[in-house]
Design a binder for these strands. Sequence first.
DNA 1: TAGGGTCTTTGGAACGATCTAACGCTGAGA
DNA 2: TCTCAGCGTTAGATCGTTCCAAAGACCCTA
Lengths: 344, 344
Amino acid sequence: MPRPTNSPPPKGGSVTLAMVARRAGVSPQTVSNAINSPDLLRPETLERVRRTIDEMGYRPSRAAQTLRTRSSKLIGYGIQPAPDGNPPPVMDRFLHALSQAADEAGYRILLFACPPGGPSLDGYEELLARHDVDGFVLSNTARQDPRQAWLAKRGVPFVGFGRMWSGRQIGDWVDVDGAFGTDAAVEHLVALGHRRIAFLGWPRGSGVGDDRAEGWQRAMRRHGLPTRGRRAESAGDVEAARTAVKPLLDAGATAVVAASDTLALGCYHALRERGTTPGRDLAVVGFDDSPTAAILSPSLTTVAQPLEAVGRECVRLLLARMATPDAPPGRVLLEPSLVVRESA
Amino acid sequence: MPRPTNSPPPKGGSVTLAMVARRAGVSPQTVSNAINSPDLLRPETLERVRRTIDEMGYRPSRAAQTLRTRSSKLIGYGIQPAPDGNPPPVMDRFLHALSQAADEAGYRILLFACPPGGPSLDGYEELLARHDVDGFVLSNTARQDPRQAWLAKRGVPFVGFGRMWSGRQIGDWVDVDGAFGTDAAVEHLVALGHRRIAFLGWPRGSGVGDDRAEGWQRAMRRHGLPTRGRRAESAGDVEAARTAVKPLLDAGATAVVAASDTLALGCYHALRERGTTPGRDLAVVGFDDSPTAAILSPSLTTVAQPLEAVGRECVRLLLARMATPDAPPGRVLLEPSLVVRESA
DNA sequence: TAGGGTCTTTGGAACGATCTAACGCTGAGA
DNA sequence: TCTCAGCGTTAGATCGTTCCAAAGACCCTA
């Protein structure tokens, strides 16, 4: 009769450290060392252990490692619901980039659903207490976002996608230089011969929006072009943009730089309404390179965020923070790139 | 001098089962029972333990539970890179729904990055061996997808978003009834008085495409309307669609049902080219309710997939499978809904 | 040959939870 | 009166790994 055991039923044919050790004729600790501190072993022992590991297809159990080391090699990410109408159109690309970068560093992304209407802190608390998450990536950071301060107070490593627009800067972040993007858009338009270049943005006070406006303004100034009367503000939806852009057209603008692809689409509509054609009668540049941009007709010239790089940098900063908790904060501003299509 | 210990530095002020037990004056096992089998305890003991748990803010450690039970309460999800040009425009919505449904059942989604060019099995292997993942959700299931068979052979619970279009059906899946969607689109058009309703789809042989075509065909037949000469095939991009739809227009179609929003947009372009207006001169219905659909002008009537429901059902089926591994396969076909906008 | 110093390797004790078997006690059935 | 199942609870072992301290192997010098 087999010995009575109170161990749970094995799931796969999971190989343990002890099994490897027995087969290789060493102690479990030596196998552990072979993996974590190879330089402690005599080369021939190391070789033998390594071969045995391969032969048996051994993989360390994360649960056991986490229990012992209190580090789960997990990065938490709260996934936001799409606020109606204006879902971040690019979030799955970012998430893939993030996941890939994490994988390469031996980490994984653990998802949790943020309830709609502002992220609460419960989810973060839960992941921290129960899963021993090593750190967090924050996105859709808002003005008055409580998360950074909350995490910082607890000494939990985190990195935000998006800088803080109000109050004191807290912690590490990676962001895209919106001003650089609109500046580049203006450069492109100037090179095409445009002089009366307008900007269609969101109401002042939104950090992202003001940033994008600033790039336009600075480039205009650099070229000695007037900005007065060339700027309009609009809510984020197409309809509002269509209305808001009209004064700019009436004022004789030959090109419009918009703060988002959605706003740019509003320009398209306004132009069609008066029987003119985007890209021919008026140059239009959007922002975000949303999937829509490529399939419009004429296709939309737009500023693309380097999401893959953002993901990589987020992981890099996060790992650095975990390695040296007291290091000065890391802040990375990445340059977006202009995707030139038919509309400009 | 404090007793020497070899425990790792505590991360938070983490409270353990043993600490709760000591404070409540019971054994650790009783606290465990209070959580996992409350009906074993005498009501007054239960009450006392529960109060202590609340007071101390105790949370069981997932790592320890996983180690002991071999169940991580984790669901693996391989996140695909966006294949160029045609990223599934809806995947982040699905992912949020999935994560939320999992959360509510006490599970979490663990992400891993699938390398581009078809998912390899390595990622699945890794999650299984190292993280003791309890199951997987598959999406972007392709013809000849090796994953289902691989997982089934190992007895790993999984559920696919998307049925299997070729070969034998393996395992559980949830899918959206494309035929139902196009059928409903035809119904709507017929009610508007249309008779010459065309279908613009992908080349035959793609499971999803054939499914959507079939709903159109069956509804047409039901109404005694001819389908001959009213069907065109096109590659998935706007440009191809624009070309492919022309014969349908020439043949006098008054309405087009497209297999995707992108194809529908191709119709828009073809119409504009000949100076006609979508929604007035020709009704157009798309499929997917991508973000683009709402912001087009005229806005696009389209068939919306119930992604929240898909997420919920995926989790439900997966949990059922884990509970009873030998139960007959669960297959859920959900009805999409027609979102009526200006184009039809 | 004994002593001292490197290098390698090992035993034992955690980490925090859950499983099994049994504790001492009561009351029902024979 | 004796046996035994059931009650709520507990002791002890165990999951697979890593940390700590110390033991063993080895070589060199005195």
